[in-house]
Amino acid sequence: MKIPRLLQAILVLGGVYGGFVLVFDVILEQVIPSSLLNMYMFFVVAGTYMVFTFSEESTEQIVSPIKALVEDPSKKMLRNVVFVLLPLFFGWFTYQQIKPSFEAPLELRTIHPAPPAAVKVFGKRYNLLTLENPFRKFEKEDPEKFASLVREGGDVYVKNCQYCHGDKLDGQGPYAQGLSPVPLNFQDVGTIAQLQEGYLFWRIATGGPGLPKEATPWLSAMPVWEDFLTEDEIWKVILFLYDYTGYQPRSWEHE
């Protein structure tokens, strides 16, 4: 039996929606954010509309049952039922949307806020546009020295950072669960792999309080490390972060 076009369209939409929920929430165990799912579905609806209406025949098949529902005298009963249910459904939906809940409002975090052109830490002014890791050069010039610097950076990390960022640098340290926003996961391709070392220096040295306004609401518990670490220690720990995760810092060389 051939499924009516209108039902096909509805099934496609339901299927895609269910598919997203099934794949992300159940199979992959990573819930799909509802804000994103709504936008996804909006464009899936647009795409479905396009496929089902680009030809006259198909449009006719989609429209005719709806037309019949509204105009056909023989469908009076069904019409009355639909006309009662639809407003009720929208009323219920609207109520669900606006009823007060205990859920805190959605918060946005700009993960990589734009850095200032220069930053004042350790009593000096650093130009973030040109700031480079002074130890990076040893990677090529003196690999042995580089390895020992990375080791020292590792010590700094273990003594200071791993409590939150985790011993695997995955943001799952012993204290991580108690923090919101949770500590960054450096293993993620979207974090340090996207950034320059100067950016990391800025973020480490000035911590949560040093974030620009545009990155709020931002209650980051990241300490202002310039008060606890020396400049060299910060550079070393940056070496360690990249070394351990295997990422290369972003560079801006114009090729």
């Binding site: 936008m39 959605l106 946005l108 700009t110 620009p212 306004k213 545009e214």
Partner: peptide, 9 residues
């Protein structure tokens, strides 16, 4: 309304 509101500094 669809995207988060951010006031630039």
């Amino acid at each position: 309304f669809g995207i988060p509101r951010i006031e630039p500094a």
